[in-house]
Design a protein around this nucleic acid. Structure first.
Lengths: 190, 190
DNA sequence: GCCTCGCCATACACAGGTGTATGGTAGCGC
DNA sequence: GCGCTACCATACACCTGTGTATGGCGAGGC
């Protein structure tokens, strides 16, 4: 009766991943408190009955979201850019050059922001954020290490690099004053 | 009858600022959606009747919060550190040396995070964030300019400096791997 | 000593969300 | 073609929050 709004599933039945995808949309728009079952059901064109088949609880969905985010965020590190062909400085530079104004990028940034806020009151979310931050920092430090920097200096540079990456997404600057492309020179990438 | 939990007002009547203060507490803990009238009233030891005397609406409270945040954030820039005695590089260094683990600092960071997430769906919040970011970037660029950097380079350094400042608050790292104090050397502050 | 006014409590109608219990249905195995 | 199973709809009880209307109450003007 109701038309499915999901992209992949047109008429077949929903699976848990469809709920998780929709949950991330809601998370990006309104934070973890906006991840509510009834609105998600309306968005998916089904009723709550479907949800309680796939999940026991609202908390279960939250857990599944964290698990999924850990997977995605870990997977992205080092695989967005082909990790075999490029030199380390080239890989870092390409990370900085990733689009930041596309719908995809904005959604990802909003999701991260929401999870970081969520992590302030939820221990599980805090653990996930801590883990992902450590993974990313370690990866960037590894790249700087491959460029010849000492481990200590590589860690510092990695932190600054990660800071620039996050700030580029979170600081709302006019696009005219965007200094993104010039960051490379200050991050020892030339 | 009910005991007032606010710090300043022990038994006299509440004013709008008391509501706004409590609202910022709720904002820091759960985002803008957690700024609800009923829970705030319970926290303040009064009922909704008081709220609807001082504010017409929930939206009015949100507006007042944004106005207050604009005021505080603008005021903090350049006045946390005595703006007359110190040299520009000293002022920047002291900004980096500001505590980040105190309850006050964590609350402020959480509030900013929540407002940035809020700004993704609310135009007024987005304007406030954009304004504050511009003010801060301009201030840091001015300091770098006073250190002798060219306007263009000063703006770049200011962005990186601001990025480091935000990241120090948002990236959840173990305190052992904290590189905060070493940032200065990478930001042309020595 | 009344009256007004600032401030708050109480009560009501309404909306929206949660979880549960139960029923319906389409498809597949055999 | 029977039945089982996966998946979803429906209905119910409950809770929490909003906004509004109205009543109460203490303090100061005069």
């Amino acid at each position: 009766m109701a038309s499915r709004t999901a992209a992949s599933n047109t008429s077949t039945s929903l699976d848990a991943d469809a709920w998780i995808d929709a949950a991330f949309d809601a998370l990006a728009e309104g934070g973890i408190d906006a991840v509510r079952i009834d609105p998600l059901a309306k968005r998916l064109g089904v009723t709550r009955g479907s949800f309680y088949w796939h999940f026991t609880d609202r908390a279960a969905l939250h857990q599944a979201m964290l698990k999924e985010w850990r997977k995605r965020a870990s997977y992205q590190v080092g695989s967005r850019i082909d990790s075999r062909t490029s030199a380390p400085d080239e890989r870092l530079r390409q990370n900085l050059a990733l689009p930041k104004s596309t719908a995809r990028a904005k959604r990802a940034a909003a999701i991260e922001l929401a999870i970081r806020l969520w992590a302030q009151r939820d221990a599980q979310a805090a653990r996930a954020v801590k883990h992902i931050d450590a993974v990313r920092l370690k990866y960037y430090a590894k790249l700087y290490g491959e460029m010849g920097l000492s481990p200590v200096l590589a860690r510092k540079r990695a932190f600054l690099f990660y800071a620039a990456l996050l700030a580029r997404a979170y600081i709302s600057t006019d696009d005219e004053t965007d200094v993104g492309d010039d960051l490379a020179s200050m991050l020892s990438l030339d």
